[in-house]
């Protein structure tokens, strides 16, 4: 279980508070206007943003002392998820072996993961030789290999068209189910949340609201959300 315990994030005149928990394997979305702090909350969980107060706990353990690499987290950024000078296979190997040592079992796992996301046989290519959608698939394949209990995504498919986006969200759902990961998806696109997330937190006016079932939220939007939806 992920617990945000009286969490407060502060930077200059921006503050965000959050106080809720989510069970293992849940599919969550954070939605809200840009600048409200969705990304900051994600970065705090991943270890890139130090909270000014409160704690972030995973299975009851405080994450504060763990470096980003040690946290039970895989994160997909908006872009720059793949190193441009490494092949796709090498980028995936980094997920299993941070010192890039390659063994036969690792090679086999990487090939299987590529196969799984529909990139079979493309391991030798460089990221620049893949389309935007294929790059997203490669990043998801690495998340599959790392199999950390939390998967955080910061608008990773924002540059894709609606059809491709839906496809990637479905693939994300499958990857999450296979690894049993708790997924938190940051998006400014309400349809992403409706398609993927069972529960949603609205991030607006300095508060990441408690989780509510996504369907219920959109059927009866609170004031913070209705303003955003227009």
């Amino acid at each position: 279980m992920l617990t945000l315990e009286a969490l407060r994030l502060t930077q200059d005149d921006f503050t965000l508070t959050a106080d809720w928990s989510a069970p293992e394997g849940a599919h969550l979305a954070l939605i809200g206007p840009s600048g409200a702090g969705k990304t900051s909350l994600l970065m705090a969980i991943a270890g890139f943003f130090t909270p000014s107060a409160g704690r972030i706990l995973w299975q009851g353990r405080d994450l504060a002392d763990l470096t980003p690499g040690e946290r039970p987290v895989t994160i997909l950024f908006q872009d720059q998820n793949l190193f441009p000078h490494l092949t796709i296979a090498q980028n995936l190997i980094l997920g299993l072996s941070p010192d890039m040592k390659v063994t036969d079992p690792i090679r086999a796992k990487v090939e299987a993961a590529l196969e799984r996301v529909g990139l079979g046989g493309m391991g030798a290519r460089k990221p620049a030789q893949l389309s935007g959608g294929q790059q997203g698939r490669a990043a998801l394949a690495r998340a599959l290999l790392r199999a950390r209990p939390m998967l955080l995504l910061d608008e990773p498919f924002a540059a894709l068209g609606p059809g491709l986006r839906a496809e990637m969200l479905d693939l994300l759902g499958e990857v999450a189910d296979e690894t049993g990961a708790l997924v938190i998806l940051v998006s400014h696109e309400p349809r992403d949340a409706q398609r993927f997330a069972v529960h949603t937190s609205v991030v607006a006016d300095g508060l990441a609201s408690a989780l509510v079932p996504t369907a219920e939220l959109f059927a009866n939007p609170p004031k913070a959300l209705s303003g955003y939806l227009g």
């Binding site: 470096t67 980003p68 690499g69 994160i75 950024f77 441009p84 490494l86 941070p98 010192d99």
Partner: peptide
């Protein structure tokens, strides 16, 4: 700016980071 967060989140050691990421780039 582009890759420090990614290398951190993957937990690369300083040597790997220098040899495989920084120097080639």
């Amino acid at each position: 700016q582009d890759y420090s967060r990614l290398t951190d989140s993957l937990g690369l050691s300083p040597t790997t980071r220098l040899r495989r990421i920084t120097l080639p780039l």
